[in-house]
Amino acid sequence: MPPDGNAVEIRNLVKRFGEFVAVDHVTLDVGRGEIFGFLGPNGAGKSTTIRILCGLLAPTSGSAQVHGYDVAAQSEQVKQSIGYMSQKFSLYDDLTVEENLDFFSGIYGVPHELRAERKAFALRMAGLEDERASMTRLLAGGWKQRLALGCAILHQPPILFLDEPTSGVDPMARRQFWDLIYAMAEQGTTVFVSTHYMEEAEYCHRLALMYKGRTIALGAPSELKAEHGDGATMNDVFIASIERAEEEGL
């Protein structure tokens, strides 16, 4: 395991689908233990970038390292080191909460002696201890998201990729979900999270604004807001950055 260095290093990353450039020369670093936000409208290239980082898509050019492994050449080592949860709820609806957890525990190869403890942790974290025998399809949206997160961290990955984890979830459940993200960051997990909710961007240590495949702004929320003058909100920063990018001929 690479002891030092950044959790994620992206250099000139490009992804083309035919003529369409989904990711356009993105370069950025994410430090260990950071909550790094990816903010941008739909179609900005957030999901594509995250999928490349998870080894689900091959980059067209440029490079990316996750936990010190190259995502193109060492995608299997990358997969050992990450947890991934996507916007589309992706658990088995026709299995119970517990069966979902057991399944992913087995697939991730969590050592047998740790399984009970990890499952208990995931259930406690997601607040699903009383629902362990419930069929997953019967859970409310917020609970499903937390169960998905629980399944993604069973193997205690040092880096967690969350692709719009809270889309379609009510504000209360969103708040609870972010409490979980903070709890994990405190334990040293790097969290790479994309969102299109402005208020969620404020929760991140640092964030990148994505627009048409490019990063048009990068920094801590407070820094970004300061650049745009007193009293600027994240929304102001976002709109101003897009206008500037359009003027530059993007």
């Binding site: 689900l56 997969k79 589309k88 709820f89 658990l91 697939i107 991730y108």
Partner: peptide
């Protein structure tokens, strides 16, 4: 349903 993607990011 998207679970294939979820399985593909596992080792």
């Amino acid at each position: 349903i998207g679970t294939m993607e979820q399985i593909m990011v596992t080792p």
